[in-house]
């Protein structure tokens, strides 16, 4: 069975989905990612979907689930590179992925994760000072 590789960059995990995913592959990705977050103690997960030509409700739900699960495991998920046609279709479908953060590309996604982690640290620091 095909397999979607998960790369570790610093304290982030990077996934680039390059194949038209069938449902079991999406579920496998969800399982592998959550395991890998725990093993690597990753703080951020970057999912690049710029190669995906469609995102239907199942794939959309999987992305949402990954974000929620990662959140529970103290990692921030950013989905990057969604194509305009895919975004328009998802909105029409009624799927706004409220739990998912997004960025235009991998670079911007990494910045977003970095800033979110820093903000969190900043808040903690400020809290300790008071």
């Amino acid at each position: 069975m095909e397999h979607i590789p998960i790369l570790k960059i610093g304290d982030c995990l990077l996934v680039s989905i390059q194949v038209d995913m069938h449902d079991r592959l999406a579920i496998a990705l969800q399982n592998n990612l959550t395991e890998k977050i725990v093993i690597t103690k990753a703080r951020g997960v970057l999912i690049d979907i710029s190669a995906l030509e469609i995102v239907d409700s199942f794939i959309g739900r999987t992305l949402n689930n990954i974000a929620s699960m990662a959140n529970v495991l103290d990692a921030i998920t950013v989905v990057v590179g969604m194509r305009p046609a895919v975004a328009i279709t998802l909105v029409e479908l009624g799927l706004n992925l409220p739990g998912v953060r997004t960025a235009l590309d991998v670079d911007k996604g990494l910045v977003l994760i970095r800033n979110s982690i820093d903000d969190e640290l900043g808040e903690i620091d400020a809290g300790e000072l008071n």
């Binding site: 989905v79 969604m82 194509r83 895919v86 975004a87």
Partner: peptide, 12 residues
């Protein structure tokens, strides 16, 4: 409204 939502999904 849909355009704004779609833009957000794309990260803008």
């Amino acid at each position: 409204i849909k355009t704004v939502s779609a833009a957000r999904l794309m990260g803008a």
